[in-house]
């Protein structure tokens, strides 16, 4: 079959819009056009694929875990809030001039001199803890220099070694591999948050537009 004219010019026209007159008169083009029509029809059909082993039970178990966590949240939130408040007071005593946050972050130093809770060396590790939220959606977004999304961690997404959650609380670990400022934002929202694209200002604006509350923030400078 030799009808390149269809693919070079009027394939989409054939699939629903204007049509090059040549294509209507050319047998090769007509045959190829038929192929694309059948391809479009095949794409419109449902895929058939068996569910992975245990999918239904795993989904039900996950749902039950999430719901149980939400029921326990008020009590847990009280306990965790107290613990976090104590941690914040300690940080304030050590640092003195930084406003308190309601979630906690600490630097685990890899061997260099201790530089404070908000300064680190490359190779250090940053641990961030987010308490259970009373909002339906709670997420942790971590950026480098306000223009690179390092991590998105939520209480319902699949866990990874660096992004864990338990009973609605989130625990994240970030290897500080680059010089610059790392910022962690805890966002809460009654509606699903839009996926962050990696530009801090745009992402926070989109989150606000989606109903997200003013985010809590923790930062660390790496050099």
């Amino acid at each position: 079959m030799t009808c390149d004219r269809l693919e070079q010019g009027d394939l989409l026209g054939h699939l629903g819009e204007t049509m090059d007159p040549h294509i209507q008169e050319c047998d090769d083009c007509q045959e190829r056009a038929g192929q694309y029509s059948r391809l479009a029809a095949a794409l419109a059909q449902d895929s058939s694929r068996p569910l992975p082993d245990g999918w239904k039970q795993r989904t039900l178990d996950r749902l039950h875990r999430e719901r149980a966590a939400r029921r326990r949240r008020p009590a847990l939130a009280g306990g965790l809030t107290t613990a976090v408040a104590v941690a914040v007071m300690v940080v304030m005593c050590r640092v003195g001039d930084r406003p308190p946050s309601v979630f906690a972050a600490r630097v685990e130093h890899s061997g260099g001199a201790w530089r404070g809770h908000h300064r680190a060396h490359r190779g250090d590790t940053w641990h961030i803890s987010v308490p259970p939220s009373s909002a339906d959606h709670s997420e942790l977004w971590i950026y480098l220099n306000a223009r690179e999304l390092v991590m998105r961690c939520s209480a319902v997404e699949r866990e990874t070694p660096d992004c864990r959650h338990d009973d609605g609380a989130i625990e994240a670990t970030v290897e500080l591999r680059s010089n610059g400022q790392y910022d962690a934002f805890w966002l809460e929202s009654p509606a699903p948050l839009p996926a962050p694209g990696g530009r801090l200002d745009d992402d926070l604006e989109a989150a606000r537009n989606a109903g997200g509350s003013r985010p809590h923030r923790e930062s660390v400078d790496v050099n």
């Binding site: 509606a191 699903p192 694209g197």
Partner: peptide
């Protein structure tokens, strides 16, 4: 559809933002 687009946007970490809607 919306959850898949969310996942793809998160995976790509590119400039595309996906609008999610109240379920």
């Amino acid at each position: 559809r919306h959850r898949c687009l969310d996942r793809l946007a998160g995976r790509r970490r590119g400039p595309v933002l996906v609008a999610t809607e109240d379920l």
